[in-house]
Design a protein around this nucleic acid. Structure first.
Length: 568
RNA sequence: GCGCCCGUAGCUCAGCUGGACAGAGCAACGGACUUCUAAUCCGUGGGUCAGAGGUUCGAAUCCCCUCGGGCGCGCCA
């Protein structure tokens, strides 16, 4: 919960504000109110540890050059006992703060004390949020797009948990509608074919090998008895049979990918419980529907959507849209205060009408956030590979895990934002698995584990922080003054802030990038500083440092769903 | 045609939600293992931030337009 860096920034801001107030009181500076400014970290080290942009922000109102304002504030800054070593005015008017190199050292005991909880924040304040992701059609195996969605959604859910939200992971099973009809017809066609009869897969049906496999297996178990069963009846049986197999397999594949859902929500249950009919009735009651061409339409245009949408087809069957409205209504009725959906880019047109429908029902559309994830383009043998599961040739999530590995795949997907169009070169990913960046970050963890094994042999151990007298702790940690040590410690102090930003911008990829930076800082340190030295105090201090690094790596890995190996 | 996303080094991408000279990895080249794992480190070269305007003290970042790529615009999901 503690954020050493944010505390320093707050303190510097307070110092700056009071200096500025003083100047105003003295009449040297003419400002009606304190301007909105921030304490940021300069990208160039030479510019200090922190910098305030207050002078530039205030320049217009104060009618004074920014550098002059900065000087005025600087002269009135009260820095005794704050760790600030010097202050300089630079560039267009930045006030740069140079702190004692040990300003962040206090983060080490914080990390060691908080352990797995280090980085946890409370910006969510326990708010109930649902993250719905993957939600792949249960008509076949999951593809690369689903894999990306799984990696992204799970990491996002974890980031939100770390940020203090009460998160539920949910998978929506599309076990109703047209595609299920086609699924049944496809299964039936294969069944007939396998028994030497003529079968025809309908337009929009499924041609994959998995459909055949299902029926082959069924024939082994139950023979040809369905030849004489009423077609509608046998299709229903085939659907039940294959759907269960597919869903079980999806659960298994996702678990192998390290993704676990709290809720598997069936679309069919919405129909069975009359919730689809109810939502259609409600929309009609509220005057947002009309009949045309024998179908029932939703007046989406009243909500800024380009065209109205069909809710119930001419044949009386509700559309996917209708059940999706019922589904989202149900989400809010279950008490979620915030609902996040992760959809593929091919569904983005669905967003405004979904929000429109929620508004029509009297729900706040702002409480629904839809993350549009750009599609994965798969390359194989240097060519674009079609990902349609209907060709039966697509690389599945299970293939990916087997070929590339869970850790590499999950890390790779979370290295980029949802916005990026992702080209996944399968050959390259497989071939370069040894060079995959995931090994870089995991190696840092394994190296630290190795140090501890070595330390144990030598009888050196990391002391429990609570066993070390406070004065002693400061003395030990203040020995860590080499550049690589200071940089590494500063990086550790960044973690809580990274969690906050990743959560508030819904960008778990930041955490992956952070692990790369932290690992880089550690590897640099490792090549310069020996941990196990002849000096017991220095050894203890460095053991605490690398223990803290290992802890933060683990916390980040947990979010990303990758393992923390003890050896590599 | 209209809407959404993207365009940063040879390649893949960051760029802290407007800050001080644009960064990293891969690829190329040159160095570092009798010491806790060299799956590592250190160094060198490389960019008109697609293009043109605008807002601002200040723009890769925000707004408008153009060009290029992806995806949508179904009584499919």
């Amino acid at each position: 919960m503690k954020d050493v860096k944010a505390e320093i920034q707050d303190k510097l801001k307070e110092l700056t504000v009071s200096a500025l107030k003083k100047a105003v009181d003295e009449g040297v500076l003419n400002l009606a109110k304190i301007p909105d400014f921030n304490i940021e970290v300069p990208q160039a080290e030479a510019h200090g540890d922190f910098a305030a942009n207050v002078a530039m922000v205030a320049a217009r109102e104060a009618k004074m050059p920014p550098r002059k304002i900065a000087e005025i504030i600087k002269e009135r800054m009260e820095t005794t006992g704050t760790g600030v070593e010097r202050i300089e005015v630079a560039g267009p008017g930045f006030i740069n703060f140079y702190l004692s190199p040990t300003w962040a050292h206090g983060v080490i005991p914080v990390i060691l004390n908080e352990g797995d909880a280090y980085g946890r924040q409370d910006i969510g304040k326990g708010k109930k949020v649902q993250v719905e992701f993957v939600s792949a059609n249960p008509t076949g195996p999951m593809h690369m797009g689903n894999a990306r969605g799984a990696a992204l959604g799970d990491a996002l859910a974890s980031v939100l948990e770390m940020a203090g939200y009460d998160v539920t992971r949910e998978f929506y099973i599309n076990d109703a509608g047209n595609q299920i009809e086609n699924f049944g017809l496809s299964l039936e066609a294969r069944y007939l074919e396998l028994l030497g009869y003529e079968g025809r897969i309908p337009e929009g049906g499924y041609h994959g090998e998995d459909i055949k496999d299902h029926m082959r297996e069924l024939i082994e178990k139950e023979g040809d008895r369905f030849l004489h069963v009423d077609p509608a009846e046998r299709r229903a049986y085939f659907i039940e049979y294959a759907l269960k197999k597919n869903i079980d397999r999806m659960k298994r594949d996702l678990e192998n990918f390290g993704v676990y859902f709290d809720v598997w929500f069936s679309e069919r249950s919405l129909h069975n419980e009359g919730k689809v009919q109810e939502v259609i009735r409600l929309l009609t009651e509220r005057g947002y529907t009309y009949e045309k061409d024998g179908a029932l339409w939703f007046k989406a245009t009243e909500f800024g959507v380009p065209k109205d949408e069909v809710l119930v087809r001419q044949n009386g069957v509700p559309t996917y849209f209708a059940s999706d409205i019922a589904y989202h209504k149900d989400k809010f009725d279950r008490g979620f205060e915030w609902v996040i959906d992760i959809w593929g880019a091919d569904h983005h047109g669905h967003v405004p009408r979904m929000k429109g429908a929620l508004a029509a029902l009297g729900y706040d559309p702002e409480k629904l956030t839809v993350i549009i994830m750009q599609l994965v383009r798969l390359y194989r043998n240097g060519e674009i590979a079609r990902m349609s599961k209907r060709t039966g040739r697509a690389v599945t999530l299970a293939d990916l895990v087997e070929e590339v590995g869970k850790d590499a795949a999950r890390f790779f997907f979370n290295l980029r934002g949802a916005d990026t169009h992702l080209d996944f070169d399968l050959d390259l990913a497989v071939k370069q698995s040894e060079e995959n960046p995931v090994y870089y970050v995991q190696y840092a963890h394994a190296r630290i584990a190795s140090i501890f094994r070595q330390a144990a042999e030598q009888g050196a151990a990391v002391p429990e922080v609570r066993d070390v007298p406070a004065g002693d702790l400061d003395r030990l940690l203040s020995m860590l003054t080499q550049d690589t040590e200071v940089q590494l410690i500063n990086k550790l102090a960044d973690f809580p802030g990274e969690i906050r930003v990743a959560a508030s911008t819904l960008s778990p990829y930041r955490i992956a990038n952070y692990t790369l930076e932290l690992a880089a800082a550690f590897h640099s340190f490792y090549n310069v500083c020996r941990v196990l030295t002849g000096d017991p105090d220095l050894t203890t201090a460095r053991l605490m440092l690398v223990k803290a690094v290992q802890q933060v790596l683990r916390n980040a890995f947990r979010i990303l769903g990758i393992s923390a190996p003890e050896r590599m």
